[in-house]
Design a protein around this nucleic acid. Structure first.
Lengths: 203, 203
DNA sequence: AAAAAGGATGAGCAATTACTCACATTATTA
DNA sequence: TAATAATGTGAGTAATTGCTCATCCTTTTT
């Protein structure tokens, strides 16, 4: 389940490993995780099944790798954007909207794989832990920003941060899944930002 | 996949069918959908594997049945609660909070099965359609209530309704999954309701 | 150039598992 | 009570599939 396999040393094998992961992404999104066989992944990658198992100990490892990549990529992007919230001079609504648009953009990058990763697969504990950590960091950052924006005296800033993080995540998710036309999309983003701004309160 | 099987006529077989579904719920939540075998379900139900396949054409049918039951139960409950929103005389915050608590209660009833149903399983198209319909009905109802509460002139009431429905669903979901202690729970519900109230605006 | 290490292959095994069917048992109907 | 329908049984099968390993090819090191 977790035993580490051979690591690719030469360029040739690095390409193999990459091709396998790419093929896995394609097939997972096309047919879902359960219906994708490792043999097909190898076939699609133009590689023998033996090579696959030389670098990935089992089917689940491919999934874990994908999830890790996703979390490890998305986390820092959002965290950067949150930090920049206090460093601009537009009004709060514009800034919140901008931040939310970044969250949306992340979901939009690959809505299929995103849906698959988050709706179709039992997440292994190690991944659950990872995304929990990521959520916590984002909430913490949000809380700090809030402290600067609304001041110390407001109570429950920690919960406020959690509510905001979860809300924006969920709304961006909805947008990626439902994929409405651009007009509805704009209106949805408007309303989402409006809700968060009014909640935060200080105009 | 969809072919209908024999229907239970006598009480005996009705009990069998019920026992099978109950066992399926238990095992699905215990081990996840993929790792649960139909033979184990029959065993747990105290019934032979042949009986299982007499009433459920395949493993997926059990899942579909569960999802249907869930949606068909939860939908009307929430819709009732939304309708009652305008028929009470408490202030808006209290009413929104009450409504949200009902959504939370629905998730709390069986958080394990809920998580399994919504995070671990590829949903068949028929079920996706069903939950889409349910969402739409809830949004429609919410929109009507909003119209009474904030008046006709406010724009984007349809989107406002969708945002509210999705938000409360997501936040209730978070609460069921993370299951924080009762103090945090209260604070979280407070903040959630507060956000929605401020968004709606009219105090 | 020889040795060693890295990389690739794919036929086939072992295990799992959804599902069938011929038959037995129980209930209902005539 | 005989005939018929409903229900229940579970050993066995067919198909799937994750994964191994003996073997060969390629690159790097000595």
């Amino acid at each position: 389940m977790l035993d580490p396999r051979k690591r690719p040393r030469q360029d040739r094998s690095k390409a193999t490993v990459a091709a396998i992961l790419e093929a896995a992404v394609e097939l997972f999104t096309e047919m879902g995780f359960a219906k994708t066989t490792t043999n097909r992944i190898a076939e699609r990658a133009g590689v023998s099944i033996g090579s696959l198992y030389q670098y990935y100990p089992n089917k689940n490892a491919l999934l874990v790798m994908l999830l890790e990549q996703h979390i490890l990529h998305a986390g820092p992007v959002i965290e950067e954007a949150i930090k920049k919230l206090t460093q601009t001079d537009r009004d709060l609504e514009q800034r919140i909207r901008g931040l939310f648009e970044q969250v949306v953009a992340l979901h939009d990058m690959a809505p299929d794989i995103h849906r698959m990763l988050f709706e179709e697969v039992p997440k292994p504990p190690s991944i659950q832990e990872l995304s929990l950590q990521s959520e916590k960091r984002m909430a913490k950052l949000t809380e700090e920003v809030l402290r600067e924006v609304v001041g110390e005296e407001r109570p429950n800033l920690d919960m406020t941060a959690i509510v905001l993080v979860q809300t924006s995540e969920a709304l961006a998710h909805w947008l990626a899944i439902r994929a409405p036309d651009s007009l509805e999309r704009e209106r949805f983003i408007d309303e989402s930002a409006k809700m968060m701004v009014r909640y935060i309160g200080v105009i």
